[in-house]
């Protein structure tokens, strides 16, 4: 019997198995937790105590070390949610649906954090908590997209239909991501342009952007921790009738 041609690497097919995913995430979790805790601790001390104050904004500039990583994460998390949703739609992969569902609450908190720290930073810098600026408005839309995904997912009785509907919403909302990214170039805005780009050196000195980079990586590790914990819960819940879950519970 000819084996069906496999187009994707082996781990991609293994990911389709809830049990394999549950176990691999259980093995990865402690490493990511240690990395996240140490990077965030080092980054926060560096950011608060050792980074120099900005010559224009003074010490309020230290908010950047929370604001920029959370804004980056809110967008990365959204892209992951949409991609996982698409994989779930195309390959009918249950684990991808669970990842997409688990992305929404983490991403929503990151969007809230970016908006809240932005507002707090705006007060001493622009003199206002909120302006209807393109960057701020598109970020607010991102938060509403997350809330929409969460609401739509919980409103549906069937898990399969809920996953399909939220995947479509997430994919439609993907159009917002380039709008957020280029909003500072397309419209006149108060918001400063991106700190990190792939092609140019950061416009700030190394002692300012290095702690920021540490914080960004720490935020990514933390996101991985929260996402894996939520996805494992989701796997336990949906596979509750499977024999391997029962064996796992009996061992406890």
């Amino acid at each position: 019997m000819a084996e069906k041609k496999k187009w994707m690497p082996r781990w991609f097919y293994q990911l389709a198995s809830p049990r394999w995913s549950y176990e691999i995430m259980g093995k990865l979790l402690p490493w990511f937790a240690v990395a996240a805790a140490s990077l965030l601790a080092v980054g926060a001390v560096w950011a608060l105590l050792f980074a120099p104050a900005d010559y224009q904004q003074g010490n309020s500039f230290r908010i950047i070390y929370i604001h920029v990583p959370s804004a980056i994460l809110a967008q990365s998390c959204y892209m992951l949610m949409a991609v996982a949703g698409a994989i779930g739609l195309i390959w009918k992969m249950k684990v991808a649906d669970m990842v997409a569902k688990s992305c929404a609450p983490v991403g929503a908190t990151m969007a809230i954090l970016a908006l809240a720290t932005g507002a707090i930073w705006g007060k001493p810098t622009w003199g206002s908590w909120w302006v209807w600026d393109a960057r701020l408005t598109s970020m607010l839309i991102l938060l509403f997209l997350y809330l929409g995904v969460i609401a739509l997912n919980s409103a549906m009785e069937s898990e399969a239909t809920a996953a399909q509907a939220t995947a479509v919403l997430a994919l439609v909302g993907l159009v917002n991501i380039p709008i957020i990214k280029y909003s500072v170039d397309w419209w006149n805005t108060l918001h400063q342009p991106a700190t990190f780009t792939l092609t140019e050196r950061p416009a700030m000195p190394a002692e300012m952007w290095m702690p920021l980079l540490v914080m960004v990586i720490g935020f990514y590790c933390f996101f991985a921790v929260s996402l894996m914990m939520r996805t494992r819960n989701e796997i336990l819940h949906r596979e509750r009738r499977a024999s391997w879950v029962r064996e796992l519970i009996e061992k406890q």
């Binding site: 608060l48 104050a53 309020s60 908010i63 959370s70 720290t117 707090i120 930073w121 001493p124």
Partner: peptide, 16 residues
């Protein structure tokens, strides 16, 4: 005090 910006900085970190 953060040169008078303490409230803003600490509020941001507390929310985080």
């Amino acid at each position: 005090a953060m040169d008078g910006h303490g409230l803003y900085v600490w509020m941001s970190y507390a929310i985080a």
